[in-house]
Amino acid sequence: MMDWLALKVWSPYVVGIGIGLLSCVTFLLSDKPIGCSTAFSRTSGMIERLFRGGRVAEKAYYKKFAPEIDWEWMLVAGVIVGAFLSASLSGAFHWEWVPSKWAASFGDFPFTRWWVALIGGMCMGIGARWAGGCTSGHGISGTLQLALSSWLAVTCFFIGGVGTAMLIFKVF
């Protein structure tokens, strides 16, 4: 058992079945699909509240998604802990500024990678809330419910993602 937990990589099918079963558990015990992007909205609202005070709660968007800690926020916090546990058990945990595939094409200067990641993150934060979900909420939880919106969303995620990655790596 410990040997298995200490493996660096599991089969994608084992991982996929695990995530599928986990989805069933969250539907059963919490009446909630797994999703990650609203936690970022709520956190953003909590940070904004530090600077602008209570009137942040009056913003139309935060009336839909109140800036507070909820189930999904705890899920995202748990993801950090779970990934840390997994990486620690396999000895894969290490501080890293520049991923190797990025370094191979664009050099290992941390500032460049940080700046690009920041821009990409901003785009993703806007897009996730614009589309009403991310690769978890739409991509896995929505598609498994056979929701039309989620099948459309995941198709657009990959059209945008493949197109952009190809442009960045093949053109620049």
Partner: peptide, 25 residues
């Protein structure tokens, strides 16, 4: 919302190389 937002998300996905769940991981 879904199609346009999804495409914007996709552009972010291609630039960042993580998504909101995997970035936490």
């Amino acid at each position: 919302s879904t199609a346009l937002g999804g495409l914007i998300f996709g552009v972010g996905f291609g630039i960042l190389g993580y998504c909101p769940g995997t970035v936490a991981g």
